[in-house]
Design a protein around this nucleic acid. Structure first.
Lengths: 295, 295
DNA sequence: CGCTTGATTGAGTGCACTCAATCGGGGTGG
DNA sequence: CCACCCCGATTGAGTGCACTCAATCAAGCG
């Protein structure tokens, strides 16, 4: 058994109640080959050379497929070339702890995860939220130790990929390397979007944009985008968005009052978005220059 | 203090060249595709050419402890395996524009650079500052187009590395791939540190931490850490730190009044830090829970 | 049933923002 | 040369948004 599995610990002290009626098998490791590999072998990512010849009509090579197909293709590529073990996680499970030696990354098959950074003086910050198709652990490559905690917010499943295995795979299969580079590049982009949001938007617009981003993200994964089920407390939300839990609550109430969102029947963590375009419009109109403009 | 804790420390890299009398050309675009190698650029480049032989291809440079040595080693590896052209940039030069096709990354030999993201509705955000040893362009991999502008804030020199070439190099030289992965991982870490700073620190502590990070980074490169020369306006600073330029100015004045920093004789962009430990202590004490705590 | 945890809402405060005036240095032209 | 302007930086006055503190409510659970 890999040391990766040993790193995974089950911490049930912070379980989100009532949401896991699924039978959980925390220590079950399933095998990847079970999913049939599609016959059409040549994926779009194979040919990495023609991507960079300087011209692309749309979004580069991505435009050849919709994002969901691309994600599936990516996951298929990884499964095929790395053949990783996988693992079921439950709410509160920690995939890796900040400071522990890095030797494994994870590819998310399902579930929702938060990455929590801690400063030396004890400040905690949720720096990222991750979902199906996202990778976990890249930040640990740099110094050989994980830079944050990865905590499952929901029941889910991750592929376990020893980093050494991944590197070997990248050497033998350049298309896998392209996939990994792209995933890391995406992660850099996302962090920057968070920073932009926190730095330039007032609190209510920030909450609104968060909901928009979540909705878009769900749509991109083929899930329904008009009915969000937040799997986090107001405290988590506030921490991630750089505001207090009370402010989050007030902003959501105000958005609800203004009909931009609607609370679901099954608790106020369920939020429906009647008109996503209108919510996005609100973000734009609310983006008064909150900080210093450039030039 | 544990080894792990040290590894997590902030290390934004900053490097400043000493001359500053050059005129700025704010909208000059230099073309990365032109392989113009300037002979006189060698003055700013590290021209050590001796090889280093022994490091594990899959471990990157983690075995080397001294960060400065590690950086030099990394740059040497890239020069050796990729043999990139290089290019002199001047203040205001734009290495790449957001939205333009991505096909090149850059490795910074000298100078200071800012990465500016723009949202659809026109908000601008300096998302990162880059210096010697940092890479530029990784965020463009994901969608085949650059995600931000890269603007030189000072005279400098960058190595020009076509991404296709880099990929080929990675396939043939696993140690190069490790270098690239490590660089991207570092970039992810840095963005998260920025987010943490913006989300958890009050404005004055945020400014203080920015200065601390700068100073540490100088020290890490063997340069003097008690005399900083900021190469950006208060507006840039404020944008990067998520506050207005007036607030930046007030915070600096207050830090000066409290003897935590001292303004230099050559203008108020020059800042000396009499006691770095005391400044760092101030950051910690000023880190009152500004946003929601977790659990 | 009471306990606990999470969410909401209210009241009041303070920090950081906006607006605005001033200052200083560097460059330019009369 | 000075006068002038422009730009960046500083400082002040006043305001408002988001924070703190605190009470209440709702839901889940032993």
């Amino acid at each position: 058994m890999s040391e990766a599995a040993q790193l995974i610990q089950h911490d049930r002290s912070h379980q989100i109640s009532s949401r896991d009626r699924l039978p959980a098998f925390p220590h079950t490791v399933s095998h990847p080959g079970t999913r049939a590999v599609s016959a059409r072998g040549s994926s779009v990512m194979d040919d990495s050379t023609d991507l960079h010849d300087g011209f692309s009509p749309f979004q580069g090579f991505q435009s050849l497929q919709d994002p969901q197909q691309r994600m599936l293709e990516m996951m298929r590529t990884v499964r095929e070339l790395v053949q990783p073990a996988s693992k079921v996680v439950r709410p509160g499970d920690v995939l890796y702890h900040s400071g522990l030696p890095f030797n494994t990354v994870f590819l998310i098959n399902s579930g929702a995860y938060k990455l929590v950074s801690r400063s030396l003086d004890g400040r905690e910050q949720i720096v990222s939220l991750k979902f199906r198709g996202d990778w976990l652990g890249f930040s640990g490559i740099a110094h050989g130790r994980h830079a944050c905690d990865a905590v499952a917010m929901d029941t889910g499943n991750v592929s376990i990929i020893p980093y050494a295995t991944l590197l070997e795979g990248c050497v033998r299969h350049p298309e896998l390397m392209a996939v990994v580079h792209e995933a890391m590049s995406t992660e850099i982009r996302r962090e920057r979007e968070s920073l932009m949001s926190v730095c330039t938007l007032a609190s209510q617009a920030r909450v609104a944009e968060f909901l928009c981003a979540w909705a878009r993200s769900m749509a991109q994964r083929g899930l329904r985008a008009d009915e969000l089920t937040l799997r986090m407390t107001r405290a988590d939300l506030g921490n991630y968005l750089g505001m207090t839990l009370e402010t989050v609550s007030r902003c959501l109430s105000r958005l609800n009052r203004e009909q931009l969102i609607r609370f679901g029947e099954r608790g106020r963590r369920q939020i429906s978005i009647p008109d996503l375009a209108r919510l996005e419009q609100y973000v734009i109109s609310g983006s008064s220059a909150r900080t210093a403009r450039l030039q």
